[in-house]
Design a protein around this nucleic acid. Structure first.
Lengths: 199, 199
DNA sequence: TTATCTTGTGAATAGTTATTCACTTGGAGG
DNA sequence: CCTCCAAGTGAATAACTATTCACAAGATAA
């Protein structure tokens, strides 16, 4: 046996993380159990000691993704003093992760990950909807505190917030597009701020 | 022979359009030659009379997509009187297509479509970058005419423009998210306008 | 130490799908 | 009307990949 044994709980965790990494770096089309096994030093069949099958692995990877994503929000809340600043911090944390290639765009951007026939689509949408609601909540706090304009719909603002980063993440490596994510985020934040801040 | 014969040119066209439809409705993961053939009333092997293989079909589908996407810009230019209005019209046309399920999000949103190992990734990014540049050009015209603020970077504005619609397209059918795309677009346009219009 | 449970292995299986090929046949042009 | 090419067919092939299973070997507890 070439590989160290691990308790199934730790192994599941490791596999789920590795799966997410593979999804992020290569996308669902090329995701397969053989490569996943290899990435954690296991033979393909060993994966089945810890998961019922591929769908369950993907499911677990999405859980890891959700935790990472929601975790970002908590960190931003901790670091900021008011809701508007929370959004700004959250945006810049996203930017850093994307710049490091450690995050989206594949999973978060991806509706392809969401095959209609499985429950994956529903799960991804649930995660993203949850994220949206968290941002909406921050917006509402900002409106209550008077730092965000009250005549705008929180959902609309939250969607635009996500829109500040999504296209940039996707296009950052396109030919002829020279895009430093952090610099972009700083610029687009100024526009966003102008749109939503109270006068 | 169950199926009407067609000249290869017309058939190629038909197949490419059908391929795009399948990509939009089901995503790359479930895209296969058998279903594609069926959708145009052909046996799988018949596809190979008109294309060298799957990649060439996908390539042709992307061409169709590009033409549709770029076509939208031309239509918007025709219908509008000034650059700011062009953007508004373009946004509402996107919204209509998305509402009809006739367009994204799969292809446009999708970096999964873009496997690293083929040239697909590069092609998609090229198309999206081309679209971005067209929007940038409209923005520049608006700045020249004085309807768009001059102290903002056109690329940043263009990316935010795309960001107005992308997340909404993805999330419109998530549980607990009730989202009428056209209404969303009307609301978000007001914010965007506030951010970019000259005072 | 020994019995037992769990994790890992490698070979086998089965289903899917892209692709090829020998063939048929519709139809356009002589 | 005949010929011939292009378009369509269906069967065969060849990967690839998910999944199963019998077996091997750490680990743990008695």
């Amino acid at each position: 046996m070439a590989t160290q044994r691990m308790h199934t709980e730790a192994r599941r965790e490791q596999i789920a993380r590795a799966a997410l990494d593979l999804l992020i770096s290569r996308g669902i089309e090329e995701f397969n159990i053989t490569d996943l096994g290899e990435s954690v030093g296991l033979v393909p069949s060993a994966i089945y000691r810890h998961f019922r099958g591929k769908e369950e692995v993907l499911n677990a990877a999405l859980d890891v993704f959700r935790d990472k994503l929601f975790g970002l929000v908590e960190v931003a809340r901790d670091e900021a003093d008011n809701p508007l600043e929370t959004l700004e911090v959250l945006l810049s944390h996203h930017a850093k992760l994307i710049a490091k290639g450690k995050f989206m765009p594949h999973v978060m951007l991806s509706s392809d990950m969401a095959s209609d026939q499985t429950s994956r689509r529903a799960k991804i949408l649930r995660i993203l909807a949850g994220y949206l609601r968290k941002i909406e909540a921050i917006v509402r706090e900002g409106q209550k505190e008077g730092v965000i304009r009250q005549d705008a719909d929180p959902q609309t603002i939250a969607l635009l917030f996500i829109g500040m980063i999504q296209p940039a993440a996707l296009l950052r490596h396109a030919e002829g597009v020279n895009l430093d994510i952090s610099a972009h985020v700083a610029r687009v934040w100024k526009l966003f701020n102008k749109a939503i801040a109270s006068e």
